[in-house]
Design a protein around this nucleic acid. Structure first.
Length: 258
DNA sequence: ATGACTGGAGTTTCCAGA
């Protein structure tokens, strides 16, 4: 089984790159973030053998799950848990794929540090844990993929001293993310590459950041123990980030033994 | 030189992204 997560930074602009990814990598599940669309035709990639589940809004946010096999129990936002959250319906979509519950998640950016929006980001991550606590057990097969907008550790950013305290690498964000993982989640990339440096999924469009590998690891696939045991390989798809008109994020690919 | 990039909304400039 192959799962890919990718922040596309506009589905409209990246639609042909999404199609290319489906054809070249043939994922069973593709999780997208920042579609920046209100609606996507569920059958857009029908001829490639895929169906699209999407939850979005006008111009911002937007998450999707693209699968070969249909999902059941599709959930949008903090359904049944916090219906009031103003943005969650554009930031979380989940559903059951075989015996695995998969989510595509776009955590708020939270800039600037210490703003109301920063605390909304921290709260959003806390709420994710409470949501998992309510509906799942760490022994269930659960996969959370997406743009979490937090680099977990110093080896996940190009300049840990310079970036310390800045958005996406602030101590409070990292503690919140750790609290989420402490429920019973493993960071798929670190299961396979526990100490590798320079592995990033986001690079600024400016400063020739990609060419110089000045990046951060903000996109993650988090899994529970039963899935950790069957991880086969993890790869960051730099080739897609190097295409003309790229997203500022690269796809993260995780393969599991069948 | 304190800049630099991209996308969307909806106007010709602003906001958000990270």
């Amino acid at each position: 089984m192959r799962v890919i997560t990718w922040n596309v930074n506009s589905f409209n602009v990246r639609a042909s790159q999404v199609e290319r990814l489906l054809l070249e990598k043939s994922p069973d599940i593709l999780l997208l973030q920042e579609t920046k669309k209100e609606r996507i035709d569920p059958n857009l990639f029908k001829s490639q053998g895929y169906v699209i589940y999407h939850a979005g809004g006008k111009g911002r946010n937007g998450v999707a799950i693209i699968t070969k096999e249909p999902l059941t129990e599709v959930r949008v936002g903090f359904q049944g848990f916090d219906e009031e959250d103003p943005q969650a319906r554009e930031r979380i979509i989940g559903g059951r794929w075989r015996d695995i519950f998969v989510f595509s998640i776009y955590v708020p950016n939270g800039s600037p540090v210490d703003s109301d929006y920063f605390y909304y980001k921290i709260q959003f991550i806390f709420k994710l844990r409470e949501y998992l606590e309510r509906y799942f057990d760490p022994q269930d097969k659960v996969l959370l993929g997406g743009d979490f907008n937090v680099a977990p550790d110093p080896i996940d950013v190009y300049a840990p001293v310079l970036l310390d305290g800045q958005v996406c690498f602030h101590e409070r964000e990292r503690k919140a993310l750790k609290y989420l993982l402490d429920w019973g989640l493993y960071d798929a990339l670190r299961v396979i590459h526990p100490n590798s440096k320079g592995l990033y999924t986001w690079w600024d469009y400016q400063f020739s950041a990609f060419k110089r590998n000045l990046g951060m690891r903000l996109d993650h696939i988090f899994i529970t123990e039963p899935l950790r045991k069957i991880i086969k390989s993890v790869e960051i798809d730099l080739k897609t980030r190097a295409l003309p008109k790229p997203s500022d994020h690269a796809p993260l690919i995780v393969d599991f033994w069948d």
